[in-house]
């Protein structure tokens, strides 16, 4: 049997809502940071997006996904969001759906989100591209109103970064792992370790932050030429200034550094399950003792931090003298964005 060929993660911390109705493209175009019109006419099946408040701060992160049998004349999208933010996002959408033919239904009891990722291979297709399984078991039960939208499954390369593998939205407990395939089933906590080690923020810790500071401009999330949407003024201002002074990086607390130099990111095995430091919200200092940033998400001995002025060294410390190994994420190519670190 092959060891660790890949993982199948059941993401129990994600919530699925379906948004449909003839005005749903127009409404989402006016609310989210990414270009829905372009997404609808593209072969992409999943799109990363943020919902902002009028001041440009993040309200909620969501992956917008075309329903399995998507047609642009009667569109339906799955909104894949963190379970704690689902009700906030749906209230936000309903508040703005004034005079719009839009319906929203929660599918948490029917649908689940899965992710597959492998430390040894990444998908060949670009981010957001649709994927197909060799075969799938019984088709989902058909609900009278939502049947057309829910029939089948939708699987796509993670729209943020292909190192996160693929994402699948399907009826609950529909995916099975073949014996001797070397694929291991894991839960959402394990996926969170992988996401943090890759330096990709999501979920409640990013609320009220500015998107570019969390590298979202490098994660296929913000369209600068789609026109007006809520919070667009701040996005445009940051973009035209051309400078993002604060960026996000992953960190690890470890004593054993062997085997890290050649890896894309430290493997998930570096996560110390016994560690419980609770570093969220702690400030960090450079070797001159100056406060240069803050940790905004931490779990076990890993986490994500924001550093003002970019990454100048590889070891930073918290104010209570815990050493943090910080690195620039492998996918983070700032030349792909017009905004750079000053």
């Amino acid at each position: 049997m092959l060891a660790n060929v890949g993982y199948l993660f059941k993401l129990a911390d994600r919530s699925i809502n379906v948004i449909h109705g003839k005005d749903c493209i127009k409404l989402l175009q006016g609310l989210c940071t990414n270009d829905i019109d372009k997404f609808v006419s593209s072969p992409q099946w999943g799109m990363n997006s943020l919902f902002l408040d009028p001041k440009g701060r993040i309200q909620c992160h969501a992956i917008i996904v075309k329903a399995p049998s998507f047609v642009d004349y009667d569109p339906a999208f799955f909104i894949d969001t963190h379970i704690n933010q689902s009700s906030i996002l749906m209230a936000y959408i309903k508040q703005h759906a004034f005079r719009k033919d839009v319906k929203v239904d929660n599918l948490d009891e029917l649908m689940s989100v899965y992710a597959t990722a492998s430390p040894v291979s990444i998908p060949e297709e670009p981010e957001g591209a649709r994927q197909f399984f060799d075969e799938i078991g019984e088709p989902p039960k058909i609900d009278e109103d939502l049947g057309r939208m829910l029939y089948g499954y939708t699987c796509f390369v993670d729209p943020r970064c292909k190192l996160l593998g693929t994402r699948t939205i399907t009826e609950q407990d529909c995916l099975e792992i073949e014996e001797d395939s070397g694929i291991v089933e894991k839960g959402s906590e394990h996926y969170r370790y992988l996401r943090i080690l890759l330096g990709i923020p999501e979920g409640p810790p990013i609320c009220n932050e500015i998107p570019q500071m969390l590298n979202f401009d490098l994660l296929n999330t913000i369209s600068y030429n789609k026109g007006c949407y809520v919070g667009q003024e701040l996005m445009a201002r940051v973009h035209t200034q051309g400078v993002v002074r604060t960026r996000t990086y992953p960190f690890l607390i470890t004593d054993k550094l062997e085997g890290l130099t050649d890896a894309v990111h430290p493997p998930v095995e570096f996560v110390d399950e016994a560690c419980d430091l609770n570093l969220s919200g702690k400030r960090i200092v450079n070797d001159k003792g100056e406060v240069v940033g803050e940790i905004f998400e931490a779990v076990k001995n890993i986490g994500l931090l924001k550093i003002r002025g970019g990454l100048k060294q590889n070891i930073y410390k918290t104010e209570n003298d815990i050493k943090l190994l910080v690195w620039k994420p492998y996918w983070c190519n700032e030349t792909s964005s017009s905004t750079t670190i000053e």
Binding site: L31, P54, A97, F98, C228, V230
Partner: peptide
């Protein structure tokens, strides 16, 4: 007329 889901402010 006030319409929702449009513009930088949402309405």
């Amino acid at each position: 007329l006030v319409d929702g889901g449009e513009g930088c402010g949402g309405f």
